[in-house]
Structure formats: C-alpha cells, structure tokens
Amino acid sequence: MQTEDVLGIFREAGAILEGHFILTSGLRSPVFLQKARVFMHADKTETLCKALAAKIEESVGKPDYVVGPAVGGIIPAYETSRHLGVPAVWVEREQGTFRLRRFEIEKGARVVIVEDIVTTGLSIRETVECLKALGADVVAAACIVDRSAGKADVGVPLISLAEYEVPAYPVDALPPELAAIPPVKPGSRNI
C-alpha cells in the first residue's frame, strides 16, 4: 500500500479536513487528519491495519505485543494486532503520564507501538519510556500516517504506512491566512 492509497481511504471517509487546527502537539495546521472518520468504518480500518501489520512483520518480525497509546492508538493497535496474531494492550494517562494500567507484559517481551498519526512523536516517546521502564524490548513503532515525513524522532525505528508532510506551525509563527481563521481543537489529548 502506497501513500496515495492511504490518503485515498482518508478522502473516501471525509477525513482530510481543511481550516485552522490545534494539533495534539500544540502546533497549528491548515490540515487535520480526522482518523475517527476512517476508524468508524471497519472495512477501511481493516485494510489499513492489515497493510501496516504486513509492513511491521516484514521490518521487525512478529512482536509479542502491540501497544497503543490511548486514545488514538487503541483502535489501530487492536486491528493491527489481530492481523499479526498477537495480543493488543494500551497505555493510558494517569496524572499526565502514560501507564500500562490494565495489563502486564513480561520483561524482555518484544513490543511494537502502533499509533494512528505521528506529527512530533511525543505520544510514542512517552509510550517507549513507559514500556522500557517495565523491561519491555520496544523493537519499533508504527503508524498509519507520518505527518512529519520521517522527521519525527520517536526514540525507536518508525514504520509508517504513509508519509504525508503537512505544515505545522508554532502559535507565534502562523502565516497570516491561517491566523485569520478561528482555530478548533479536534484531537483527544487533555479531554
């Protein structure tokens, strides 16, 4: 599956939005990928995650676990793990820090983190930190769309199904045309 195939699925689902968006990272962008509009369709989600699972297995072999950062990574982690034939678990925030609250994983377990969209890689870096503290061997992270086009440092190798570089700006460096539009925050962090 190529980037255009992935973006075609997002377009079919009406998931490529234009306007002025506050991203989870705090950066601002004229484009938002509303993956929830894709994930509401089991067939589209299956197509993307089956391709991501194949790419993971080709790159690092079969992991012992797939871990998704809550909230956005839960659905793609689950569906990707289904195609890999391994358990899916997730980390969630507890007092602002990711914790593996509902599950245990064995020390030395080979883990791949699966995320929906990567912009700065912060959620993956925080997940890596949590899992390494538990003794897991985080062999890679994977995402459906890498908005940084390979520039985000996630702390482990990043496997992406699509690279789609979209501009993102600090709030104090907005282009005038973006600054003229009221911002909206459609993401899930801090809710």
Rank of each mutant, 00 (worst) to 15 (best):
A140Q: 07
V86N: 01
I75T: 11
T119W: 00
E94I: 14
C130A: 13
A133S: 15
V154Y: 01
A88F: 09
K151T: 13
A149K: 07
I113H: 03
L131T: 11
G150V: 14
L122W: 15
G72L: 03
H83A: 00
R101G: 12
A70S: 10
D137P: 06
I75D: 04
G73L: 04
A149Y: 13
P76I: 05
V112D: 01
K107I: 06
E106H: 12
V139F: 13
V145K: 02
A149D: 15
R99W: 11
R93Y: 12
C130N: 04
I117P: 07
A142Q: 03
T120F: 01
L134G: 08
G135D: 05
V89G: 07
G96K: 13
A70F: 00
E129L: 15
S148N: 06
P69T: 04
S81W: 01
V138M: 09
D116A: 07
T80R: 02
V89D: 02
A142P: 15
L100S: 01
R110C: 04
G108I: 11
G96P: 00
V89M: 11
S123T: 13
F98M: 05
V86L: 08
T120Q: 00
S123E: 09
R102W: 07
R93Q: 04
V71Y: 12
F98S: 06
V118P: 04
V145Y: 02
V114T: 09
K132W: 13
A77N: 02
G155E: 07
R125Y: 05
G73R: 06
G108V: 11
I124K: 06
G135A: 03
K107Q: 13
V156Q: 05
I113C: 00
V128I: 10
T80D: 03
E79L: 15
G135S: 09
G155L: 11
V114W: 02
V111F: 05
E129C: 13
V156N: 00
L100E: 07
H83M: 04
A140C: 01
E115W: 01
S148I: 03
E92T: 14
E79P: 06
F98Q: 10
V111N: 05
T127F: 00
V128D: 01
V138G: 00
A142F: 04
V91D: 02
E115M: 03
T97V: 15
P157N: 07
I117M: 03
V128W: 04
R110M: 14
I105H: 09
V156S: 04
F98N: 09
V145D: 08
V154H: 00
L84R: 04
S81I: 06
G72M: 04
D146Y: 00
T127I: 12
V156T: 08
F103N: 11
A70Q: 09
A133K: 14
I74S: 08
P69D: 07
E129P: 12
G108A: 10
A141Q: 09
V114D: 02
E104P: 14
A109Y: 14
I74M: 13
E115Y: 08
C143G: 09
C130T: 15
E126H: 14
